[in-house]
């Protein structure tokens, strides 16, 4: 399973949506994921890929982990997974 598919599955589960409704351009907010849901999604991503996601809920948009859209989260996870395997 690709990183993208897995991340979309995690987001879909958190948003209680069908995975086909999770499209790359959507923001997590549009999908109904609040701040607590975001923290839980990131935990699920860390567990799924065995990575450490740099994320501080006090400033979700700071740092290199971009949570502005589904696509940006997928990209950020791909970067972390790539960095991990180096």
């Amino acid at each position: 399973m690709s990183v993208k598919t897995k991340v979309m599955e995690i987001i879909a589960e958190q948003a209680v949506l069908d995975v086909k409704d999770v499209t790359p351009e959507k923001t997590l907010q549009e999908l109904g994921i609040d701040s607590l849901g975001l923290v839980e999604s990131i935990f699920a991503i860390e567990e799924a890929f065995d990575i450490q996601v740099p994320f501080n809920a006090n400033d979700p948009h700071a740092g290199e982990f971009d949570v502005s859209s589904v696509a940006s989260v997928v990209q950020a996870v791909e970067n972390l997974v790539a960095a991990q395997s180096q």
Partner: peptide
């Protein structure tokens, strides 16, 4: 919970981080 600061507690300061 991802609400903790790694460096300092800076209440009310614009650059506070937890």
């Amino acid at each position: 919970l991802r609400v903790m600061s790694r460096d300092a507690c800076r209440p009310f300061s614009a650059n506070r981080n937890g």
